[in-house]
């Protein structure tokens, strides 16, 4: 019996190294290695481990890729899209969860049906042109607002909060919106963090949105900036690898520090 469990442990590590390290970590390490080579060094021998570490690639990629502007845009879009989407979702989920409106069930049903509708990217593009939301920061934020999964998640979460709390607050003279902002939202913190993480990851990583809705280079976020950078420097892999690492680093850091919550969020979203 003891031998068998030792065998199991070894097998786990063998699979772990082949799959996780070999298929997942190695490509990332290779990317890092390339990013530290000089262009000449890369062309002379792409696979050699660099002796002299060329950190300058990161500076060059940052400057030539206009990363300061793109980075700021990415931050602005992510913060506003996430924050406003959460706010909309809470304000929509609360009355529906509590049946404070006559047609609460109809609204819930409408949100469910919307999950099964055809994609609307093309009409959304013409709509953006007509409403002057095309090629504008505010427009891009508005176009990307969505209640999506968080609406269902919050409805479920709010239902677990006793309604007696609403009644007590109302008796004490607390108004509707004051209740939402000062009582409900603090209580929803774990749910807000969960959905906020998912929204933020989605907003930061979005490529198709900026390609369709932003034509002015000054408005691009990192994703589109990187993609265009790839088109310009498709043969300069050291520079390109450095750019890729710059763009992925915020998400990797987020993942390292908030991994437990991200995985929980992914699992929690599924249950809804």
């Amino acid at each position: 019996m003891k031998n068998k469990s030792t065998f199991d442990t070894v097998a786990v590590h063998v699979v772990g190294w082949i799959l996780s390290v070999g298929v997942y970590l190695l490509p990332l390490l290779f990317l890092l290695m390339i990013s530290l080579k000089t262009t000449h060094g890369f062309l002379a021998d792409p696979l050699a481990i660099p002796v002299h570490l060329e950190w300058g690639n990161f500076v060059d990629a940052w400057q030539q890729g206009h990363m300061t502007d793109y980075f700021l845009n990415s931050v602005i879009y992510t913060v506003f899209i996430t924050g406003l989407s959460l706010l909309l979702s809470v304000l929509a989920a609360f009355p529906v969860a509590r049946n404070y409106l006559k047609f609460s069930n109809a609204i819930y049903l409408l949100f469910v049906i919307s999950l099964f509708l055809p994609g609307g990217l093309i009409p959304l593009f013409t709509e953006a042109l007509k409403l002057h939301l095309f090629n504008s920061r505010i427009g891009y934020i508005i176009l990307n607002l969505g209640t999506g999964l968080s609406f269902f998640f919050f409805v479920g979460y709010i239902k677990s909060i006793p309604k007696a709390l609403d009644e007590a607050a109302a008796l004490d003279g607390c108004g509707y919106f004051r209740f939402v902002f000062q009582v409900l939202i603090p209580l929803l913190k774990p749910a807000l963090a969960t959905m906020g993480l998912l929204d933020a990851i989605g907003a930061w990583n979005n490529l198709i949105g900026p390609v369709v809705f932003l034509s002015d280079q000054n408005l691009w976020p990192l994703t589109r900036g990187l993609f265009v950078f790839y088109g310009q420097f498709s043969n300069n892999w050291p520079l390109l690898a450095a750019a890729v690492i710059i763009v992925m680093t915020p998400m990797v850091l987020l993942f390292i520090f908030l991994q437990r919550y991200i995985v929980q969020a992914a699992g929690g979203a599924i249950k809804q």
Partner: peptide
Amino acid sequence: KKWMPLLGLLPAIIVFGAFKIYPSIMTFIY
């Protein structure tokens, strides 16, 4: 006061209708 919940719901409904439902239906028409 009776209308406050509706007031809170309104932005979500507008965004939802304008940028989700309407484009979906228009895809069919287009």
